[in-house]
């Protein structure tokens, strides 16, 4: 059906959750840091993704309004960077590094183990909404290859054997150090994750 054209002009422009006032306030707090409002784009997207789990079409529109840009400009940026998800992701996102050092040390096996264990492929989410999986170019932890990130936390020298324990561990994404809440969702806001 490659001759068919996708209808972009009447595609729904309000898909997914929007940003709450608290989140918008959090984004506005970045304005004094930069000369232009547009420069707040990346922080705003980080905050939005933290708050609602991904960047929905409606969130892009909200951010465009905040930054006084056409919404297409936000879409442009969102699709350029690999960290932003445009569809809902699981509670925990497993990121496997696939660069040379990690692959030499067995990232392939790790990836295969995750894919078979969870039954999902790159950028997919388990039906229960618990896990999403993606591969990432170099995570800059080549000395600990192969490495696996669970949300914010880096797990080093992960073998397929450790995977069960890691998946069962509820705290596998908790950071061992005090967090800065600069990019976090405002207090009390729970990300709506999963399908």
């Amino acid at each position: 059906m490659s001759w068919q054209a996708i209808d972009r002009k009447s595609a729904p422009a309000d898909e997914g959750p929007g940003l709450s006032d608290a989140v918008k306030e959090k984004i506005r707090a970045f304005f004094p840091r930069y000369e232009t409002k547009r420069a707040v784009m990346l922080p705003a997207l980080h905050v939005a993704q933290e708050a609602i789990g991904y960047i929905s079409v409606r969130a892009m529109k909200d951010i465009a309004e905040l930054l006084e840009l056409p919404p297409s400009a936000v879409m442009d940026v969102v699709t350029f960077y690999t960290h932003y998800w445009t569809h809902p992701r699981g509670e925990k996102v497993l990121m496997v590094c696939r660069s040379l050092s990690c692959q030499l040390m067995g990232a392939d096996k790790l990836q295969h183990a995750i894919e078979t264990k969870l039954g999902i492929k790159d950028h997919e989410t388990t039906p229960d909404g618990k896990f999403s999986f993606m591969t990432e170019e170099c995570l800059a932890a080549c000395d600990h290859a192969p490495c696996l990130m669970v949300n914010e936390r880096m797990h080093k020298r992960v073998t397929p054997e450790q995977l069960d324990k890691l998946l069962a561990d509820a705290d596998s994404d908790k950071l061992p150090m005090p967090r800065s809440d600069l990019y976090d969702a405002p207090h009390g806001e729970k990300p709506a994750r999963g399908h």
């Binding site: 009447s10 595609a11 729904p12 297409s72 879409m75 442009d76």
Partner: peptide, 20 residues
């Protein structure tokens, strides 16, 4: 500014925002 480049590398393409 309705038209934009989306994605990157050889997957880059031109697109409009859905519904705009």
């Amino acid at each position: 500014g309705e038209l934009r480049v989306i994605n990157r590398g050889h997957r880059a393409e031109i697109d409009v925002f859905p519904g705009v």
